[in-house]
Structures are given as C-alpha cells and as structure tokens.
Design a protein around this nucleic acid. Sequence first.
DNA 1: TTTCGTTAGTGGTCCGACCATTATTCGGAC
DNA 2: GTCCGAATAATGGTCGGACCACTAACGAAA
Lengths: 196, 196
Amino acid sequence: MTNQAKLKVYQEVLTQIREFIEVNELQDGDRLPSERELSEQLNAARSSVREALRAIELLGLIETKHGEGTFLRTYRPYHSVELLSTFVLREVRTKEELLDVKFMLEKQCLEQVNIEEVADAFQWRSVKPEERHTAFFLPMFEAINNQLLLKIWHLVEGFSNTQLVAIQEKTYYEQLYSYIHNDERDQAIKLHASSY
Amino acid sequence: MTNQAKLKVYQEVLTQIREFIEVNELQDGDRLPSERELSEQLNAARSSVREALRAIELLGLIETKHGEGTFLRTYRPYHSVELLSTFVLREVRTKEELLDVKFMLEKQCLEQVNIEEVADAFQWRSVKPEERHTAFFLPMFEAINNQLLLKIWHLVEGFSNTQLVAIQEKTYYEQLYSYIHNDERDQAIKLHASSY
DNA sequence: TTTCGTTAGTGGTCCGACCATTATTCGGAC
DNA sequence: GTCCGAATAATGGTCGGACCACTAACGAAA
C-alpha cells in the first residue's frame, strides 16, 4: 500500500495554490484568483478551497478583503507563533519552565545584541518599576532583528509576568547596560543570572 | 467604530474550541466533539467549524481520523509541516530567523544538559543520515526536562528540517557527545556553531 | 465634469445531500 | 454460551447551491 497517497482535497488545493504563486511569480500584495475561480480551475468545491484559504489566512500568509479578493501578504512568523502558543502553553503551566525559558532567551540576547543598535536604550529609566524589565529588554530583542525570537520572548514574558517577578533596581539595569557596552558579556550574564 | 470587532465565524469557533480544551482539560490524544456536535453547540454551520478545524489541523495541533473523530495531537514534525513550510519559508528572511532560533536553542541545550540523564544517547547511530540531527538532540532536550523548551525546539526543528539542513557525519555527533561528556562545553558549542 | 445609483464580482455563511470509513450492535451458526 | 459476519450508526470528506454583505467599476443624470 502506498503510505500516504490519499491527501485531502484542501491539501491538494494548497499545493496547487503554492504552485500558482510560484509560476506566476506573485509578490506580496498581489491578488489571488477568486474562490470561485480557484474552485473551477482546480476541480474542487468552493468549500474545499475555502478550507485551504482559511488555513493559510490564519497563519497570516494571505489577507482576505470582503468584496475585493484574497491577497498575498508578507509573512511574519510571529503571527503563527502567537496562535500556536495558545495551544502549546496548554499544559506548560509550570512557572518554573516559563522562567527557565525566559531566562535562557534573555541570556542569549545579552550575548548577541549589538548595543550600538539599541534604540531607546534608556527608556526604562522613566517607567514604572514593574515595567522596567520589559522596557529594558524589549529594545534589545528588537535590535537583534529576529522577529521570531522577539515574539517568543514576548509571549513567554507575557505569561510569566502574571507571576511575581522580582523587581530590580535601576542600578541593576544600569550595570547590565554598562557591562554590555564595555563588551564584558560574561559579567552581564552573571549579573543577569543572579537575578533569577 | 470598533476597530476589529467583526471576527469571522471560524475564528470565533477557534476561540471556543480552545476554551473547550481548557475547561475540560483535554490532553494529547483526547477526542474533540464531532464536527456536527460543535456545529450545533457553537451555533455555526458545519462548514465554518470545518474551516477552523482544517486550519489547526494544518498546523499539526489536531489529527482527524475518518470515521472516528478529531483528536488532540502530540506534535509530530511530519505530515503537513512540509506543505506548510513551502509557504512559510518563501522568504529568505524567515529561513534565517528560524535557523537562528534553532541554533540558539540547541546551543543552550548543549550548555545545560546533564549528559548522564540522556536516555538513548546513541540512538542516532542507527538512523538515517537526515534524521541524525533530530535523533541526537531530541533525547538531550528531553533530558533538560523542560516541556516548553522542548516544544519550541520541536516546532522550529520541524520547519527548518524540510529545508536544506547540512547533514553531518557521525563523527560530528560523536565529537559533540564526547565534549559534553568531558564537560568541555565551550568546545562542544564551538563545534556546534561551526556547523551553521 | 461631477455625482450618485446601479450592477457585477467577491468573500462570508449557511444548509442539505451524499460518499467513505470506522466502530458498534445484534442475530444466527456452531 | 461463543464466535463470526452482516446490518447499523456515527463520523469525517466532499460537493453544490443558496443567500447575504461588502467593494469597486460603470454609466446615466445633473
């Protein structure tokens, strides 16, 4: 027996849409054929075509405008990450696990970030104490220029925030910043670790 | 005017399915109500329910068995991920981000893992070359004992796997293992980094 | 030329029908 | 009583059509 030969219609449709995009070299913002056209050209019911389209819409790959059509869209991985997280975090409720991952991400950030590229580096100074942490790290993650990483951290941050996080003094972040600025990464990481 | 109040039906359905899972504390493998039941209970047409289900099926969050029902699914990186990735990885940017995050996670794993706790440490020896990487890292991530971290890596792994990943020789993983075993973490990390 | 209804095309939603597959049920053969 | 196989019921898979809501383009009137 062939192992997997029987793909569902909506999956075939997806493949063909993918090919259509390829062949016609569609760019972001370009319009796809209407649901009815696709339905006819691909020999599939409109409802099946819709199942395919809704799936990749949810992912953020396309955008549908009522009365206008379906358009290709610049894919941003963080859309799907958000969606996935609500399911992935389903059973990962352990505060410990969340904090571990969050710590790990921040550590990685401290290692990688180019401090020169951090905008609003001192935004956190003028912010409420409980928001300092986010205000400090957010621009740093943005400077890393990896939206996926940023989104993951943001989500973990959001979930763990509801738990009590130790609030650090301004001096803590000042020290952290200064370490990185002088490229004393290991010192920064050590300090960061001591706060968890 | 409210900015975005008008969610589509399938999106509402999605939310409610999520709540259903939450409230009833469904675990992986558990069965969801049938499409017809959901349709009735949520006051939505069956086709709308299907749009929602197909979307999260494509994501790999549920599994449908013809004649049986719809089941919550332990994430497995085969199936539709390949299809999905052909869409998602259209842009070079996305590939880079995925690989960066994957690299980062693995690096962290190499730093943290207690090699004594790794079960099936040499499973990867007897596996197809293209599966070596996963077979090597999976037990290590499991040994870290952080469900969240594991799931994140698994997802990223699944996507990036479908694209060209450099296949390493057995000696590469042997070396990696031996470094960690002798607690020469920095050597392991350096080796790992050289492969990306 | 401008304005404003009309109209055609599009996505959004619903309904009902039928098929394919699976698990269950039940009755007869042993 | 046990076992087996044929109905049966429940489920997902697919189709086609109907109608609504929204948008843009067109064309006639001012």
